[in-house]
């Protein structure tokens, strides 16, 4: 297999961001548009190099792996056009405020009432809002990929969640663990914070990153 440091970074970062590699390499391969064989090989490399360990729940990045990810994220961030990232991040944050409201409306019909998903008109209206937001997010996500090619797969991942929702699979709105719209969006947010050279805690304190 040809040595491709950017793919190594991509795989390590996905595992780190998700906290745990999904049980099969195939899920990570799908995320990144890589072959299952390559991802399997990279998993083995990560374990061999002491950056990750195998656990019953899946591959877990350990201390040295986390340090390595932080270095790679910092290096990536140092290479990009900071002003362009900052401008994009601001646009993302505006969309993020809306996304959070939509996702909350999906879960709660009001502050105290969980959405039991029996009201089809209500659900359709929320899905419509999400879909309209996705249309407006697409150019932003595409522009992110232009700045940092490693983040290019986010476009396809969000499109995929959006398609599944439109086809009626509503678990792809907010369900954790699977690549639901909220899951992918939040991982993108994490990567944008890294790319902008910011930290999650600072962003949260500023009311943007929680």
């Amino acid at each position: 297999m040809p040595e491709s440091p950017s793919n190594e970074f991509a795989v390590l970062r996905v595992v780190a961001v998700k906290g745990r590699a999904p049980a099969a390499a195939v899920a990570v391969a799908e995320c990144l548009g890589l072959s299952v064989e390559e991802v399997d090989q990279r998993f083995t490399d990560l374990v061999d190099r002491g950056l990750a360990k195998s656990t019953p729940g899946g591959l877990r990045v350990v201390g040295p792996g986390r340090e390595r990810v932080a270095e790679l994220v910092a290096a990536e961030s140092a290479q990009v056009d900071r002003a362009a990232v900052a401008a994009l991040y601001e646009r993302f944050c505006e969309l993020n405020d809306e996304l959070k409201e939509i996702v909350t409306a999906w879960q709660l019909t009001d502050a105290d009432t969980p959405n039991d998903h029996t009201d089809e008109a209500y659900d359709a209206a929320v899905v419509a809002r999400l879909s309209a937001l996705h249309d407006r997010a697409r150019p932003v996500v595409a522009a992110v990929a232009d700045l940092a090619p490693r983040l290019a797969p986010y476009s396809a991942r969000l499109d995929s969640a959006d398609r599944r929702i439109a086809a009626g699979d509503h678990s792809y709105v907010t369900k954790p663990i699977i690549d639901s719209y909220h899951t992918v969006w939040f991982e993108l947010h994490e990567d944008l914070i890294g790319l902008a050279g910011l930290t999650r805690a600072d962003e949260a304190a500023a009311g943007r990153g929680a």
């Binding site: 961001v17 906290g19 745990r20 954790p176 991982e187 994490e190 805690a201 949260a204 929680a210």
Partner: peptide
Amino acid sequence: RVTTSPDDLHG
């Protein structure tokens, strides 16, 4: 947590 990140999910 101060705030949660995606990788906090399993915890």
